[in-house]
């Protein structure tokens, strides 16, 4: 339902998104039937394709040419897909979006090779673009995403971390790739520096809000909506925004302690969820997400008049209100 609502937001981009979808299929085509099966498994799981959409919309502000822009939009989605395949190995996740993960369906090694294959295809694809700056932005993003994941592992179950640590983490985990999607779309379509900056900052703010909402939903959405047990983030030791407001709550403290030793039972999870859901932490987190969205909307205002401005606003508002 949510995905449909999002898709309605960019119906006028549908023909180009269909091209991207087709290109994703082509890019994942392999001589190995196992890689084909794993890739098809991933493609069928769908996804919001939010990164390619940001590339397309940003490019619309410049000299838009889908044959050129697809060479940015497709690799960005592939990089996102590949990192999810590897993340599932790291998090030992058996389910994603309600479907079995590659590592659960086959094994960790198959997931590693599939992820590496997709990463490689992403880079192969982007070499159709000769602009050195494009590659530098994308490469820096890939390295920083990894750094973010390393930090995330280091920060697991660390209760003495502060909000700055959290923001640093979600910036690299999510905001950077959305920021780069907007920036790269703008750069590849030859937009001027001032507007590239506005779009990049828009992407960053939206990305931060997107991850905060994701972190809220991990507590507030149902297991069915999430396609995995609610509260999984904290169960895996990831201290997300709502928990910063509840770190001193005895039930939360106890839950983190138990989770760090792998002793959580279903009753503990439900008790933890009840505390978070009934607390002010959710409202406070939403307020922070909205602050980022306001900043994003300010960047949109600074852009030249274009019908895509409305789209950027609508997507930002959708992100703030999405239910899962």
């Amino acid at each position: 339902m949510e995905k449909m609502k999002l898709k309605l937001l960019y119906t006028d981009l549908k023909s180009d998104i269909d091209i991207i979808e087709k290109e994703l299929e082509n890019a994942l085509n392999s001589s190995s039937h196992l890689i084909n099966d794993a890739s098809l498994h991933l493609l069928q799981a769908g996804g919001k394709r939010i990164r390619p959409v940001f590339v397309l919309i940003s490019a619309k502000f410049g000299n838009y040419d889908i044959d050129n822009i697809k060479n940015i939009a497709v690799p960005l989605e592939l990089i996102h897909m590949a990192s999810l395949v590897h993340d599932d190995v790291i998090d030992d996740s058996d389910l994603r979006r309600g479907r079995r993960t590659v590592k659960a369906q086959w094994n960790n090694r198959v997931a590693m090779y599939t992820g590496d294959f997709i990463f490689a295809r992403a880079l192969e694809y982007v070499t159709a673009i000769e602009n050195k700056r494009v590659h530098q932005i994308l490469a820096k993003t890939m390295v920083e995403i990894c750094n973010g994941e390393v930090i995330q592992i280091e920060d697991k179950f660390r209760v003495d971390q502060n909000l700055k640590d959290y923001f640093r983490r979600i910036k690299r985990k999510t905001a950077l790739l959305i920021e780069s999607s907007c920036e790269l779309g703008a750069v590849a379509s030859g937009l001027d520096e001032k507007n590239i900056r506005h779009l990049r900052r828009y992407g960053y703010f939206v990305g931060m809000s997107y991850q905060i909402v994701d972190d809220i939903l991990d507590f507030t959405a149902s297991d069915k909506e999430l396609g995995k047990p609610a509260g999984s983030d904290l169960l895996h030791g990831n201290i997300t925004l709502p928990i910063f407001y509840l770190k001193d709550h005895p039930i939360i403290k106890q839950f983190i302690e138990k989770a760090s030793t792998g002793k959580v039972v279903e009753e503990d999870r439900l008790a933890m969820l009840k505390v978070v859901r009934n607390s002010e932490a959710i409202k406070q987190s939403i307020a922070l997400s909205n602050q980022y969205l306001r900043k994003a909307l300010k960047e949109v205002e600074a852009l030249p008049n274009h019908q895509m401005k409305k789209k950027l606003r609508d997507i930002a508002l959708f992100i703030g209100k999405r239910k899962f």
Binding site: S83, H86, D116, A139, M142, V143, C146, V150
Partner: peptide, 9 residues
């Protein structure tokens, strides 16, 4: 896992 990805980046 991340070392491999980092080297790749």
């Amino acid at each position: 896992v991340l070392a491999g990805d980092f080297y790749s980046g």
